[in-house]
Simulated scan of single mutants.
Amino acid sequence: MALAPADGGRRSRRGFAYQDVVTLLDCLDMLDGQWTSVSWEDLEDILCYRDGAPNYRQVKTIEEAGTRHSVASVCRPETPQKTVETSYLGKLFLGKPLPDDTRFTLIINEIPQPNLYEFAVERDRPRGPVSEPTRNAVIERMSDLQLPDGRDIAWCVDRLDVLVAGRTIEDVEREALHRLASHVGGLLGTGPMYAEVEEVMTRLIEGIARSARALRAQSVSRDTFQATLEDSVRKVTGRRSDGSTEPLMTLQEKLRPAGVSDVEAEAQHDVMLTFRRRRRASIGTRRQQLDDLAEDVHALCTVTMAERRSGLIPPGSDAYQATVLKVAQMPQVADRTYNLVDALATLRRHPLIDHGVGLVEQGS
């Protein structure tokens, strides 16, 4: 799979939490039959295929209340050189194969100005016609754009959609939760609890974010995403799609070998859930800081695990205590870049504890 031409490589994940949830909605659309495959951080923010026809999807959010996109703003160059290639639509149209059934989707988080709203589309249906004055206004503003494959700007404009998503991350998450509930309930054969659906959603979003940091994009098929969903449901609920069950290890059970009481573990679990919700809702610099914190804690867990396996630290409570102390003594915690509560909450959701291996061996 080719790298994204607009970036020259896989981008960092600064401020893209909103996009990750939108990507989840596109994957849910795939489960409902709208797409045959979905990838992200590829030739565009999100790339959806329907039977070989690409839909290039670019996510653009506005944080300032009252600011709305218009035809002028999406055609406006973003560089001092004022080249049309650097506008939103220039980046959306350029640098990609353009087969006959190509479509382009600009995904935004607010109702745009009336002229751009003419391109608005629902997730599950095609858009209506665009007036000639509006169509011609876009073509005129983008007329200097040089397209490959014998295409012209009018060809691209006729295939442009604008999808208005939720205003905030929380708005988009509510839509994802509502849609996920039916899928989770279908797998379980009964109505799921809200907390279960929320946990499944969190796992799926975090999986999308991890994949987006990989060197190259991977295309996910409907069957692959269905399997990922089923695996997430199994891990969260302890129930398989065939109706059978398997032991579901709670945080209390995971920490019991480390000498942590059930009451203390339950309190830690509540703190962990609060931190997880706050992290999902954060954007920009704050989101990147929390992601950096998770990577730092992961590194400390890896060090402790290596020390335990080499015999330097006994398993169980000693290994857990050593890890907690390492986290508490992190320079980033000492200088208050991160607070200790967030650092320890990150530790408790770390996979080396979640999987019951590493810091605390099963049966130790």
Rank of each mutant, 00 (worst) to 15 (best):
A4Y: 02
R11Y: 04
R11E: 11
R13E: 10
R14I: 11
G15M: 07
F16M: 12
T23N: 11
D32R: 13
T36N: 05
S37R: 13
V38P: 01
L43I: 09
L43E: 11
L43R: 14
D45P: 01
L47M: 05
C48R: 12
Y49K: 09
D51V: 04
D51C: 03
G52N: 07
A53L: 04
E63R: 14
R68N: 08
V74Y: 09
E78Y: 03
Q81S: 14
Q81K: 13
K82D: 14
T83P: 00
Y88T: 14
G90S: 06
K91T: 07
L94C: 15
D101W: 02
L106Y: 05
L106F: 07
I108P: 01
I108L: 03
I111P: 13
Y117E: 14
Y117L: 13
R125H: 12
P129T: 10
V130F: 04
S131V: 02
E140Y: 08
R141M: 05
S143G: 03
L145M: 06
R151A: 08
A154N: 12
W155L: 02
R159Q: 07
V172M: 08
V172F: 02
L177Y: 13
R179C: 01
R179Y: 04
L180G: 02
V184P: 06
T190N: 08
G191C: 05
E198V: 10
E199L: 03
V200E: 07
V200N: 05
M201A: 12
L204V: 10
A209D: 14
A209W: 09
A212F: 07
S221Q: 05
R222F: 00
T224Q: 15
Q226N: 10
A227V: 08
L229I: 07
E230C: 09
R239N: 08
S241D: 07
D242K: 06
S244R: 13
L248E: 08
M249P: 00
L251S: 02
E253T: 06
P257Y: 08
V263C: 01
A265L: 01
A265V: 03
F275V: 02
R278L: 06
R280C: 01
R280Q: 14
I283Y: 10
T285H: 12
D292Q: 09
E295S: 11
H298M: 02
T304V: 15
S310P: 00
L312Y: 06
A319S: 15
L325C: 01
Q329H: 11
Q329E: 15
M330H: 03
P331G: 01
Q332G: 05
V333S: 00
D335M: 06
Y338I: 01
N339A: 00
L340W: 02
L340D: 02
V341W: 03
L347G: 00
R348I: 03
H350F: 01
L352V: 04
L352D: 12
D354R: 15
D354T: 12
G356K: 08
G356A: 05
V357R: 13
V357S: 10
L359Y: 03
V360W: 00
V360I: 15
